[in-house]
Design a protein around this nucleic acid. Structure first.
Lengths: 160, 160
DNA sequence: TATGACATGTTATAAAGTATCGAGAATGAC
DNA sequence: GTCATTCTCGATACTTTATAACATGTCATA
C-alpha cells in the first residue's frame, strides 16, 4: 500500500521524512524537551534505514558528515530518543528502529526478519490479558515488556 | 512453599540439583549429545544462581576453580546449553538462566525484577493467538519469540 | 596405530556500552 | 545586561560482552 502518489504530506522521495521529524520536534517541545540538530539528525538516520541500526552504524554515518564522533555522542542521542519514545531498542540485534507511532509511548511488538533484517513494528493495542494474569499470579508489577518475534518476512519467503 | 523436607527427590541443601543435572545429562545423551564435565559444571553454576548470570560471572567462578579460563570456553558451553534448551538467554540483562522445564524446547516468558534481578520463567502453554494472527496478517513466518517482562517482584514490593 | 570427530585451550580482537571531565550555548532571575 | 544555572555536546579513557581463528587434547574405532 503505497501512499497516494500525487498529493498528501507523504509524497516525494523522503516519504514524509521532514514531516515526521517536524512532528517529533513538536512532540519534544510540548514536553519541554528539545530535539536539537544532533538528535534530529540521529533520528533522521534511524528513520531512513530500512532495518535496525546499531549505535556504531549511526556513529559511522555521523562521522562521515562531521569527522570524528565518539560513542557517547551517539548513545546520548539514542537514549534521548528512547526516552521520548521516538525510537525502540531491538534487543535481539542490539539495534535501534524508529517508532512508527510516536503519538504516545507504547510497548511495541517487533517482527524481525532473520534474512533481510527488516523489523516491522506492530503497536500493541492493549495489555495482553494472559500476561496480566500471569503477572497477577506471581504478584509481579509489570513496568515494561519486550516482545520480539524472529522469523522470515513475506518478501524473503517469496524470494526463497 | 518449601519442598517437603523429609522425603522426595528435591530435599537436601541443593534442592535436587544433582537430579536436575542427571536429567540434563540423560536428555543430551538421548539426543546423541554429551553433557561433558565442563558443560555440566556450567549448567550447575547457572542452576545454583538465584538470578541471571552473565557469561563473565560464570567465567569468574570457573576461573576460581581451574585457573585461567578464556571467554570462548564459557560461551561455547553456554551456546551448547542454549541449543539443548537447558538455559535461556535473557536479552534484557545479557545473562543466562537455567530453564525450568527442560522436557522439551519451548518459548519462555521471563519475569525479571528490576530490583533484585531475579528472573522467573513461565512456560508458554501454547502459541499466543494474537501474535499468530498478527504474523499471519504480515505473512510473517515465526521462528522464535522473545518475551521479557520487566518490573518488580512480590518480595521487592513487600520490602519497599 | 592412524584417522576422524568432537571438545577444549589459547591468542587476539571485535562489538557494544559507560564513566567522567570540561567547554560552550541556552535559559531564566534579578 | 549579566550572573548563575542547566542543558548539550566533545573528548578521553575504559568496561563489558562476544567472536574469529587456530592449536591441542581426547576418544572411539577401522
Amino acid at each position: 500500500m503505497t501512499p497516494t502518489p500525487d498529493r498528501g504530506p507523504d509524497r516525494g522521495p523522503d516519504r514524509g521524512l521532514d514531516r515526521r521529524l517536524d512532528q517529533a520536534a513538536e512532540l519534544c517541545r510540548a514536553r519541554g524537551q528539545s530535539l536539537t540538530p544532533l538528535r534530529r539528525r540521529v533520528l533522521e538516520i534511524v528513520l531512513e534505514a530500512d532495518r535496525p541500526l546499531g549505535a556504531y552504524d549511526v556513529l559511522e554515518i555521523l562521522a562521515e558528515e562531521r569527522g570524528r564522533v565518539a560513542p557517547p555522542t551517539v548513545y546520548r542521542s539514542l537514549d534521548f530518543l528512547l526516552d521520548q519514545g521516538l525510537v525502540h531498542k531491538v534487543l535481539s540485534v542490539n539495534g535501534f528502529v524508529a517508532c512508527s507511532d510516536t503519538a504516545r509511548p507504547h510497548a511495541a511488538e517487533l517482527f524481525i526478519c532473520r534474512h533481510c533484517g527488516n523489523a516491522v513494528e506492530v503497536a500493541r493495542k492493549a495489555a495482553d490479558p494472559r500476561l496480566e494474569e500471569t503477572a497477577a499470579g506471581l504478584d509481579f508489577a509489570i513496568e515494561s515488556v519486550v516482545l520480539e518475534v524472529r522469523g522470515r518476512c513475506a518478501d524473503c519467503r517469496a524470494d526463497a
